[in-house]
Amino acid sequence: MEPRLTRAVVEWTGWGTAPAPVRDDARVIAKFGATAGPALVKAARRLEADYGFGSEEFRLRHPELGTDAVDALAWASAYDA
């Protein structure tokens, strides 16, 4: 598991801190810095694009993600439905 990527997805979506998904690149860059932040934002965006609501296959394709990141993406997807 990649804990930094998990934390970045959670931060990017606003899971646990925002009343609705925010998908805020600046939050990730502020938390992880100008060097690592942009790459983590790009990864979060790719993961969201790959996420299928309720998809067990997603978990199998992305074992590097912690449960919090998967939950965050599910929450963000639920708002889009």
Rank of each mutant, 00 (worst) to 15 (best):
G37T: 07
F32N: 04
R61F: 04
H62I: 03
D68L: 15
W12V: 04
D71N: 12
P3H: 15
A36Q: 06
G54F: 02
A18H: 08
G37W: 12
V10Q: 05
V10F: 06
L40M: 02
I29H: 14
H62Y: 05
E56A: 13
A78W: 13
G14A: 02
A20D: 07
T13M: 08
A36K: 01
T67I: 14
A18C: 07
A36V: 11
R61V: 15
T17L: 12
L5Y: 05
A36N: 09
L40I: 02
V28A: 02
D25G: 04
L40H: 02
L60A: 15
G52I: 10
I29E: 04
G54W: 01
L5E: 10
M1V: 13
A72I: 08
A69W: 09
P38T: 10
A44C: 08
F58M: 05
V41K: 07
A26I: 11
G14E: 03
T17G: 12
G66N: 09
V10N: 02
A26T: 05
F58P: 08
G16V: 12
V22H: 10
L47K: 00
Y51L: 11
V10I: 07
F53P: 00
R23C: 07
D80C: 08
Y79R: 11
A81Y: 07
V9L: 04
G52Q: 09
R7A: 11
R45W: 11
T67H: 14
P63C: 03
A49R: 05
A69E: 00
G16C: 08
D71T: 09
G33F: 06
E57F: 13
A34L: 11
R27I: 05
F58S: 00
D68K: 13
H62Q: 06
L5A: 05
E57N: 06
G54I: 02
R23V: 05
P3M: 14
A43D: 07
A72K: 08
A81P: 10
D25T: 06
E11C: 06
A44S: 04
D24E: 13
L73G: 02
R23K: 03
R46N: 09
F32D: 00
E56L: 13
P19V: 15
G66R: 04
A20H: 10
F58V: 08
R59K: 15
D71V: 11
A18M: 15
W75R: 02
A30M: 11
V9H: 05
A18K: 14
E64T: 14
V70W: 03
V10R: 02
V28W: 00
G37F: 01
E48L: 10
G52E: 15
V28I: 02
F58I: 00
P19D: 13
A44H: 06
R7D: 07
E56R: 11
L73C: 03
T6V: 12
E64S: 08
A69I: 00
L65N: 02
R46P: 11
Y79W: 14
W15N: 06
G16Y: 12
S77Y: 03
A74D: 08
A39C: 00
P19F: 15
E56P: 07
G52V: 15
P21E: 01
A39R: 06
L73T: 00
A69H: 00
A8G: 01
D71M: 12
I29C: 05
